[in-house]
């Protein structure tokens, strides 16, 4: 019984800082835009009682969502976000797996140091690091400059101001979020299994694919969730590295909120994004539970 208050703390935390803001955003999504301060008129007020809410949803509340569905811009932005976030996540996975594997295989006393090396760059400001990528990727940037100096290319490669730059930005920014769960899974593996596979006739490569890799699906799923979900709503990376034609839902949301001052529509986008994220989460959860069966 003593444990009870302790267990309550995370619930209070979640209630105050997760559930309450979420409810505010949802309520905002069902509101009307207005020339006011704050710039909306709530359709629902907390004092009305639930019975009237349903009528109001039918009468007005879904307008913002209808707009989201009817205006192709939003759907396109979401699809484009999913595509870029998925590409970025795939690239992160490809980069992070060998890193996590190498760290897990390193001598025990060196592992913490190597993990720290992965995390240390992330102690500086996220914005500054993304700005640094501009300097690296732009046509007269470091990478193009070097490649041209070495005579490998004649004209600068289009690395900046496009989708490729965003994918690179996502891959760079979210690397630790993939390395850490993968490392946590790999570190617990019994390496004698890999040896057993090699003893039974598998080359190192095949031993990895047939024995080690299948055992790390939990780490892979955790890493994908940790990277894909925030990357989907990413704003800074597309804003700084992407081109003028780059469509990402986070950017659209930002411009609805700050440029158009349409808070209810921005809130509706946020809610739609949340639902869009819940779908892959639910699928992965299913895969996960099937895997354990």
């Amino acid at each position: 019984m003593r444990a009870r208050p302790v267990i309550l703390i995370p619930f209070i935390w979640l209630g105050l800082f997760f559930l309450a803001p979420l409810l505010i955003v949802v309520r905002l999504a069902f509101s009307e835009s207005a020339q006011a301060r704050p710039p909306y008129r709530p359709v629902f007020s907390w004092s009305d009682g639930f019975a009237t809410w349903i009528d109001k949803i039918q009468a007005f509340g879904l307008d913002n969502f209808e707009l989201l569905l009817s205006e192709p811009l939003y759907g396109d932005a979401l699809l484009s976000s999913v595509r870029l976030a998925a590409l970025g996540t795939a690239l992160v996975l490809v980069l992070a797996y060998p890193i996590a594997y190498a760290i897990a295989k390193a001598p025990r006393d060196k592992r913490l140091f190597l993990l720290t090396l992965i995390v240390v760059p992330f102690w500086t400001s996220f914005l500054i690091r993304i700005y640094a990528w501009i300097a690296l990727l732009k046509p007269e940037g470091l990478i193009n400059h070097m490649l041209m100096q070495m005579g490998w290319i004649r004209a600068p490669l289009p690395l900046f101001g496009n989708d490729l730059a965003i994918v690179i930005g996502i891959a760079y920014s979210y690397l630790p979020f993939m390395v850490l769960p993968l490392y946590a899974t790999l570190e617990k593996l019994d390496w004698s299994l890999e040896e057993a596979a090699r003893d039974l006739g598998a080359t190192r490569m095949r031993a990895f694919w047939r024995v080690t890799f299948p055992q790390t699906h939990r780490g892979i799923i955790a890493g994908i969730l940790l990277v894909f979900v925030p990357a989907l709503g990413e704003f800074i990376i597309p804003d700084l590295l992407g081109g003028s034609d780059t469509l990402m839902i986070g950017k659209v949301l930002w411009s609805e909120f700050f440029n158009n001052r349409d808070w209810p529509l921005a809130a509706a986008i946020a809610v739609a994004l949340l639902i869009a994220m819940a779908v892959p989460l639910a699928i992965l959860r299913n895969v996960e539970t099937e895997g354990t069966r």
Binding site: D190, S192, L193, E195, A196, R198, D199, L200, G201, A202, T203
Partner: peptide
């Protein structure tokens, strides 16, 4: 290499 040796091993942990 281990995978080409006509020798098989039973590991202590069974693996």
């Amino acid at each position: 290499p281990p995978h080409n040796r006509p020798v098989n091993m039973m590991f202590q942990s069974y693996a």
